[in-house]
Design a protein around this nucleic acid. Structure first.
Lengths: 337, 337
DNA sequence: CTGAAAGCGCTTACAG
DNA sequence: CTGAAAGCGCTTACAG
């Protein structure tokens, strides 16, 4: 159906080797021959078959990306960063999302098979040895927002620092002393790091963080509402609540308002992520902006770079990179509208 | 590095043909031989090379997806639908997003090259003849949210009906007579269809739609604010404003509030899409929910199905499918909180 | 500067 | 039931 390299060669009266050389701009080719080949390519609208090319050259010019199933605008930004880095380097992007069935890690096998030159795994609940198995096959892997604690390059937002800045604002600027926490999924390090930031800032100022002030959410819609209800039932109600992401913060605000409380006058609420929704919530959320696009971009760059090195002489890439976060002050913390 | 079919064959003491038969479950194979081969596959952790397989079988088990560059939660849902359909069918998903430079349609060429068995194009500003060129090479294409007016299968949300339901609610339930419009990108049919819905409902009731009531936005952040300002400057201010998507509706509300107006008491505002943000806006948005996930899912199914048919005897697939929308009534229309 | 040929790792008629 | 071999469409030493 589509023209092959043989058709072009015949049409131009040369061998397929010459066509390949012209197309890939390698070796010297007589200008006149080149012209003839280029014309044939144009006339037949020749596009080399990517599979044949990949098989012959042992390189696919494709980057693999695995993201969680969750529909989070957050991940979409990462995808954009990865996509931009890939296409800037002339690479394709093969995407898979984590299947719902845990354990059914077929998406990893999918990438075993010579389909990609490198991979980026975003916040995926992977097993370290599975990742290692792929690396051992010569496919470099870079992790984003998930550290499996092996010698695998990892890109993270600086959750600890971000949380610190946020809590320092609550405590030092607004003078709140009783600050509570709504956690995200507890198995991911980001939630733990954010809690650590809260804990340390309070401790440094001699403030207490009672166990009852630490409630558990899962980052998803609904969980912030329930957690907030528990906090509001407490005899010693907190003055401010730090939700581990914006979605839960938005739900927490609604829970407070449902009880007739005013945010931030009766109780302040802050979030994390600065998703698009954050500025439309009422009151607009004070939160922490993560370098999401940048995370994807840099991770992809490193993965691509690693795939281009000689597998023997691969230089040492950074084990972990933390990108800085930014405090975004709006009104839910108590700052003036 | 990774084991090939030759390694497995040697290890099991058979020919590569037999290994292939066992792996793909085709033809009869002696149970004992099969056992031996399976053991070898297990022991060597064999994964067939996808490129070689694709080249030999002329089928890649990969679906291509092209989406716009815009970061819209909307598109993410479509991607999820497509992804689910693909992985349910055992297909990979190759994603590209439209480059910023218009005209630089490299993403289409990317898919020419035998990398995918079928393609789904979402709301992409493609040229009909480019799409046709790919189809002519034997790669079926399905369009989502964009109708190029050729004989190419297209999936759309029923924008016209959705807008009608919304406007009927404004006019018949709330009794508004002066309803204005903030358009999306004018070159996409969805914005035009939504306007048509507005126009028809008003006309059927003998209500006027002055030219000044039709303002222009681009679906993106900021444009709703500016359009709303124009509407509020009008001597004969509208009682209700229909923004062609939720993002612009949210911005329109903020523009009204910045003038000291109360939404919906002084002026009602409604949107379209029902993005996650819609329920957190103040007041919560009355809007129209689109079957976004479903759109992606069904489009992918059709594309995959088409790729499996004999290219000669391909049966007639539907030219256009409109999926129904749902009215979501919240408070920005004037309904009670 | 260019051609002939091996090879990438599979699938699939074709024999037997 | 199984093996030998052609073929998928390229790249890339190797000669010349």
């Amino acid at each position: 159906m589509a023209a092959t390299i043989f058709d072009v060669a015949q049409h131009a009266g040369v061998s397929i080797g010459t066509v390949s050389r012209v197309f890939n701009n390698r070796d010297r080719v007589h200008p006149e021959t080149r012209e003839r080949v280029l014309r044939a390519i144009r006339e037949l609208n020749y596009q080399p078959n990517a599979l044949a090319r990949g098989l012959a050259s042992q390189q696919t010019d494709t980057l693999g990306l695995v993201i969680p199933q969750v529909n989070d605008p957050f991940f979409f930004e990462i995808v954009r960063g990865v996509e931009d880095a890939a296409s800037a380097a002339g690479y394709n992007l093969l995407i898979a999302s984590q299947p719902r069935q845990p354990g059914e890690h077929s998406y990893l096998r999918l990438f075993h098979r010579g389909h990609v030159d490198a991979m980026v795994l975003v916040a995926i609940d992977v097993l370290a040895h599975e990742v290692q198995a792929i690396i051992d096959r010569g496919v470099p892997i870079v992790l984003v927002q998930q550290d499996v604690g092996r010698n695998i390059p990892t890109f993270l937002a600086d959750n600890y620092y971000g949380a610190r800045t946020l809590i320092e604002h609550l405590v030092d600027v607004h003078g709140y002393r009783r600050v509570a926490f709504i956690s995200g999924t507890d198995y991911t390090p980001d939630s733990r790091e954010r809690l650590r930031g809260l804990r340390d800032v309070l401790a440094e100022r001699g403030l207490d963080l009672p166990a009852a002030y630490i409630t558990h959410g899962d980052y998803l819609r609904g969980s912030g509402y329930r957690a907030m209800q528990k906090l509001l039932d407490l005899p010693d109600r907190p003055e401010a609540v730090f939700a581990a992401n914006d979605q839960m913060a938005a739900d927490a605000i609604i829970a407070a308002q449902a009880r007739g409380l005013c945010v931030p006058d009766d109780i302040a609420v802050v979030g994390f992520d600065d998703v698009p929704m954050a500025s439309y919530v009422n009151p607009p959320l004070t939160t922490v902006s993560q370098p999401v696009y940048e995370l994807g971009w840099q991770a992809a760059r490193l993965a691509l770079e690693a795939s281009r090195e000689d597998s023997d002489a691969r230089p040492l890439s950074p084990r972990m990179v933390q990108l800085p976060t930014t405090l975004v002050v709006r009104h839910s913390c108590g700052c003036a509208g």
